[in-house]
């Protein structure tokens, strides 16, 4: 809390409602996520699910091929699944903040009586999920390198492409999470499943764990309307370099065009999510849904 206090005292932060809300919400989110267990149990909990998820794919692959190896398609599947941990956590993290504040802690009405910036509050609540997911990705990729001989050469990784595409991808994901969080404010049923439904859809259509070429031709275009598809492709190329499996669907995209597309997606989604959040908040207040406790 001392560190948070120091950050809050910085002149830039003191002048900005949005930044103060964002930092406080990030700290609150971290406390909610982590303070129910001792650090060791929390670490096991945080890593067990993503690790099991990637191990399912490793076993599937080894059952069919007779042993997981360093073939390009294995690296494609493994890294795609590892990076996708961020997608699920960030997207669902923001919408879950609405659910837990409204239904579980029942504090949403109190929150909206404070002078906070709601948009930045929800963004901040997603940060803890981002941190946990980031650590999980690092561990899962590390395990892949050590135990499954992923062809990762740290000297050969295109770091600028990796960091640029990942930063842009996360911005788009946060905006998508905000849109889902805004929708959650207006929903009385099935809000539990909304984040999972979108994350599940993206898992299928973004080519996270199989190349888009495997999808039936009629479904392939769906993948191109999501930023996640471009981010995963760019991040895989950055990490694997010439070892990356290239499939016809993305062969015509250069690295620069992937980054360009991600910039456009990021800008559009941030602007849209900001308007959509305001509209949803107004509608939730107008319909009396803002502090609804459905017990659904």
């Amino acid at each position: 809390m001392k560190t948070v206090g120091r950050i809050m005292d910085l002149p830039l932060v003191r002048q900005s409602d949005g930044l103060r809300t964002f930092i406080t919400a990030s700290w609150l989110g971290w406390q909610i996520e982590s303070n129910w267990a001792d650090p060791l149990l929390f670490a096991i909990y945080s890593i067990a699910r993503p690790l099991a998820g990637v191990m399912i794919l490793v076993v599937m692959y080894s059952v069919v091929t007779g042993g997981a190896g360093p073939e390009p398609v294995f690296a494609y599947i493994y890294l795609g699944n590892a990076l996708y941990i961020l997608v699920g956590q960030v997207i669902t993290g923001v919408s879950w903040a609405v659910i837990s504040d409204r239904e579980h802690y029942r504090t949403l009405r109190q929150l909206y009586t404070t002078p906070m910036n709601g948009y930045f509050y929800l963004m901040g609540r997603g940060v803890s999920k981002l941190i946990i997911a980031g650590i999980s990705v690092l561990i899962v990729v590390g395990i892949g390198k050590i135990f499954f001989h992923l062809p990762l050469n740290f000297a050969a990784i295109n770091w600028p492409l990796f960091f640029a595409s990942t930063a842009l991808g996360i911005i788009s994901l946060a905006a998508l999470g905000l849109i889902l969080g805004s929708m959650t404010m207006m929903m009385a049923r099935h809000f539990w499943s909304l984040g999972d439904a979108v994350a599940g859809g993206l898992y299928l259509f973004s080519g996270a764990i199989f190349p888009l070429d495997v999808l039936p031709a009629a479904l392939r275009p769906i993948g191109f309307i999501f930023p996640v598809t471009y981010w995963l492709e760019a991040a895989r190329r950055a990490l694997l370099g010439p070892q990356a499996a290239l499939f016809p669907t993305f062969a015509r995209f250069s690295n620069a065009s992937l980054v360009g597309i991600l910039i456009v997606f990021g800008l559009v989604l941030i602007v849209f999510s900001s308007f959509f959040y305001r509209w949803s908040l107004h509608r939730a207040k107008e319909k009396g849904l803002i502090d609804m406790e459905t017990a659904y």
């Binding site: 599937m60 059952v63 069919v64 439904a197 599940g200 199989f210």
Partner: peptide, 25 residues
Amino acid sequence: WLFFETLLPVLGTAAYVFVYRAINA
């Protein structure tokens, strides 16, 4: 519930089916 509780598992199942297809199982 039909939409969320059957569509969602079908999407997840489909993803794993396509993984098997990608590796020619």
